[in-house]
Design a protein around this nucleic acid. Sequence first.
DNA 1: AGGCGTTGGCTAATGATAGTAGCTTTCAGG
DNA 2: CCTGAAAGCTACTATCATTAGCCAACGCCT
Lengths: 190, 190
Amino acid sequence: MARAGLSRDAVVDLALRIIDEEGGAALTLAAVAGRAGVATPSLYKHVRNLAELNTLVSVRVMDELADRLREAVLGRSGDEALRACMAAYRDYVTGNPGRYAAVIQAARPGQDDVAKAGGRVVDIMLATFRGYGLEGADALHAVRCLRSAVHGFAVLESGGAFGLPLDLDASYALLADMIISGLPSPARQR
Amino acid sequence: MARAGLSRDAVVDLALRIIDEEGGAALTLAAVAGRAGVATPSLYKHVRNLAELNTLVSVRVMDELADRLREAVLGRSGDEALRACMAAYRDYVTGNPGRYAAVIQAARPGQDDVAKAGGRVVDIMLATFRGYGLEGADALHAVRCLRSAVHGFAVLESGGAFGLPLDLDASYALLADMIISGLPSPARQR
DNA sequence: AGGCGTTGGCTAATGATAGTAGCTTTCAGG
DNA sequence: CCTGAAAGCTACTATCATTAGCCAACGCCT
């Protein structure tokens, strides 16, 4: 019998395809095995267990997101960079409805899953705030606020929590204004 | 054999106790049945299925949260009310680590779970913004931003995503400043 | 070419879980 | 007391994750 030629990465690819097409809830080892044309236990040759697969998927998604953010802020600075970063974040989440939701769903406290996977995202945000002259603790607080705002909006939007027929772009623009206007600007003043 | 005397509400109570003591992942019909001293299928007399139980739990939690918010803003207005509202939100989430996480985990897009359960929370926030003279679309956009910020922060904090040893209260205070400073204030200006 | 070890895949089996069907018992109200 | 609905129960099915242990394919090295 010819081998399926699976690999750790191939398994994650299949998992992502399932998430995209059927939603995060459909991500099961049986489903992955089905797509791979393989018996379920065979997957354990490539992945420790379902939890690890979830982690791998999360890391992949966060890396993808970080790439988008990096591209977005490239060559920009200040307000422009920040707005571009926020827009890219939302575009990624709404453009890949299942993927971001899967990361959230998979995030179990106690693991540093999210923390590790989100490291690059944090770095990009930090670099963006450096364009405002923010350094040290100020920058870190600002990153926390930005992440909260952007992540919260993304979660609520993709979860359908914003039910009213009111322009979402306008809401998001206001959110960006809030962050920018509330930013400490020590570099300019000192 | 004496009856256990269960009810829809009693089942939800047990579910909440499990969530508090063992985390949201431990919420299973078998676990609830065990605590109730009843066989698993008996629960179906009170609850349609696990999904419905999750919804009921979410509604209960959001109601509880709304109560806290209502108490917090009572007798306050403007910045003071807004800050109190935000503080109460975070206090609830950090004070009940499992509960809020369970709501997030249970939120499946496609259902209006979150939307319905969060209705009272939205109303309270709307009322708070009315203290700034915000009405109509402006107020609704502001509520979306507030929800995003506060929910995002809560999720990230309780998920351990803020790894650095940096004062969380200070970050949250900055978030509040951002929202307040970015608020449109038509009532004062017009 | 041939041998051999690693690796990837398989079958079989276990245990947890959600959910259904259908029977029985309790209990409250007439 | 009787009776019917509500609340339990047992038995059963189906789906998963996960483990154990077997076997075949592939690459490499002579």
